[in-house]
Computed example of a mutant assay.
Amino acid sequence: MDELIDILDSDGNATGKTALKSEAHRKGLFHPTVHIWFYTQNGQILLQQRSKNKDVFPLLWDVSVAGHIGAGESIEISAIREIEEEIGLTVHPEALDKIGVFKSVHRHSEHLIDCEYHHTFLCELKVPLHQLKKQESEVEDLALQSLLQFSQETWGLANPQKYVPHSTEYYKTIIKEIKRRL
Rank of each mutant, 00 (worst) to 15 (best):
L132N: 13
N159R: 14
L59R: 15
K162E: 06
I77Y: 02
L96F: 02
G12C: 10
L46Q: 09
Q44V: 00
P128H: 09
I175P: 05
P165E: 14
I175W: 07
K162M: 07
I87F: 10
V164R: 12
G43P: 03
L147E: 09
Q135P: 00
E73T: 01
D9L: 09
I99D: 05
Q49K: 15
K21C: 02
S64L: 04
D114K: 01
S137H: 11
L125D: 09
L60N: 05
F57V: 02
E94A: 13
N13W: 06
L60A: 11
D62Q: 02
K172V: 10
A14N: 06
H68S: 14
F38T: 08
D6E: 14
L4W: 03
E73D: 05
G88L: 09
V63C: 15
D141T: 08
E84N: 14
T173E: 12
L8F: 13
K52V: 11
V139H: 04
L144W: 01
A14F: 13
L29M: 15
I83W: 03
Q149V: 06
Q145G: 00
Y171N: 15
K54A: 15
H130V: 04
V65P: 09
V164Y: 07
W61G: 03
K172I: 11
G67Y: 14
Q152H: 15
F30I: 03
F150H: 06
E73K: 06
K176F: 05
L47R: 11
A66G: 14
E86Y: 09
